[in-house]
Design a protein around this nucleic acid. Sequence first.
DNA 1: CTGAAAGCGCTAACAC
DNA 2: GTGTTAGCGCTTTCAG
Lengths: 341, 341
Amino acid sequence: MKKRPSLKDIAKKLNVSVTTVSFVLNGKGKEKKISDELIKKVIDYTDSINYRPNKVAQSLRTGKTNILVFMVEDISNYFFSKIARIMEDIAYDKGYKVLFCSNENEDERSKELIQLFSERQVDGFIISPSPGIQNEIESLIENKIPVVLFDRYFEDLDVSHVIIDNEDASSKATKHLIDNDFSRIGFITIESSQNQMTNREKGYVDAMKSAGLEPLILKIPFEKIHKEETKLEIRKFIIEGQELDSVFFSTNYLTRTALEVIKETDQTLLEKLGVVTFDDNELFRINTPTITAVSQPLQELGESLMNTMLNLLNSKAENLKPTKSVLKASLIVRNSSINKN
Amino acid sequence: MKKRPSLKDIAKKLNVSVTTVSFVLNGKGKEKKISDELIKKVIDYTDSINYRPNKVAQSLRTGKTNILVFMVEDISNYFFSKIARIMEDIAYDKGYKVLFCSNENEDERSKELIQLFSERQVDGFIISPSPGIQNEIESLIENKIPVVLFDRYFEDLDVSHVIIDNEDASSKATKHLIDNDFSRIGFITIESSQNQMTNREKGYVDAMKSAGLEPLILKIPFEKIHKEETKLEIRKFIIEGQELDSVFFSTNYLTRTALEVIKETDQTLLEKLGVVTFDDNELFRINTPTITAVSQPLQELGESLMNTMLNLLNSKAENLKPTKSVLKASLIVRNSSINKN
DNA sequence: CTGAAAGCGCTAACAC
DNA sequence: GTGTTAGCGCTTTCAG
């Protein structure tokens, strides 16, 4: 193995000092008044051997890695992966690279990942936090590592975040069903104390109550989402239990599970049952019937997240006040929720 | 900002040398015959301040990062993300962390990513390569950086790989349609010279010919997959053109696009049209009708990939012969492909 | 048993 | 204009 050449090797080869090479390579040649001739000589040589500086050494020296971490529940989820892509493009222009990872909404995994990347000195974290990592977030902040929370946040922690107005979105979705003459409207959600979920529930409950309707709620524990018993529960709730005429799902994976259940049970059910889901998805455009969905503004979310992060990064050490952004979601009306009479 | 404590800080605090602390922290206390008492003192203190070594410094010193890169076309694709997860678990047990990234099957992006991670001294690459990065792969190999290719490979490059027998899988799928009395069987694929695709085509063509049937092929350029004109082309091919009675798709994103097209055009078409797709997906279980799919053995693929990589990693410098694994895929028969008469 | 010190590759203050 | 050198935080050889 021909060891990768180092600055020193280059300096020796060219009979100049490492400083000179370093300055030239970092574009400080002019500034340091190094002769054009020498600059050209260095550039030509490094180009010719395709020299690549060792970033590990650079990072050790400068304390910066130019790496940002985007940690979410599940990066293969359309919602998260789309935003990831948007952020990546913005970050790239500013010289940052974004690393993606999934915490499965588990505290253990979140902590491990934060640990792992902290040790590796990443420059900042954008996190959709699992419920119990408040301390870890706090400790990052204390160490002056930029953190932006996303999708959900901790109410008693003064940290920058970017979220949508879940209550408003949920309320709009519920009212839409009511306007389409549904009245036995069920709400299927995840059992969770995280505020993105509680706010969705609140939006639903308030909309129902103010229309004089009875809230009908089924809560699934997160761990059981992919269990067979969950399917049974959903089936029971929709089909046998409450004589529902429609359902509003608080997340798209619940909707997917429910669609499977319905498919296995009684395909024709969807001809009568009203359906609205949180979070849009490719599948919902293709399904029979197409599914009405609350759609989050992906582009704005991504931009807002990255801008907040870049601000934090640039305001080095100075105590910038946390930025808190709340964006609005919109309802994409499709066939599943229009009046079925 | 309270600077993170370094080894030196700890040594000073404890009135011992950095060497001692380093040995203890690396579990070499016993080996180096450091007194139990001292070991305990060090451990207790580092635990109490929750000391975390700076991995950047460690990496610079040791030349190892314990990071592996898994680069695929699109990590949000079910197929790739599932395998990623399987590998991650195995790697984790061996002290490696896996970083995921998507190259969108673009050479430019692939090169950038390889560049980026090489500079950061990652220990190995598992890559589903875009068509034109043969040189970059070669150069990694020359620098003795472990590489395992996945899903596709370069026929004239002697590099470890893990793939499935695409020709066989494709042939089985085609024969399945033939056995179910379909005869005007179209094949919709990506225009590509990469061997995972050419082999799928070959499997189809051979199966058709040996049944005395005429191959009917539509090729979509990769860049146009999400363009509107692609939908038009697919529609024309299936509906107007060749009087097909069935279609076999070479990738699941083509199938998704086609399902959308069909949905927009004539929902009842699927009652008559036979459909088989490469690569299983959640959607295909939910769709009406459920879609027959070629399913790759995810668990085995993941295990095989990681084992190959770990072997490479452990056979440091010694010239290990590349390992080439070819696994078999299976056909999951659902409603879309059973005899429609 | 423990400590001193070299050095991984790079940056940048300082010297000349 | 260019070179010398300290040091980022860590591992590990060698000395005692």
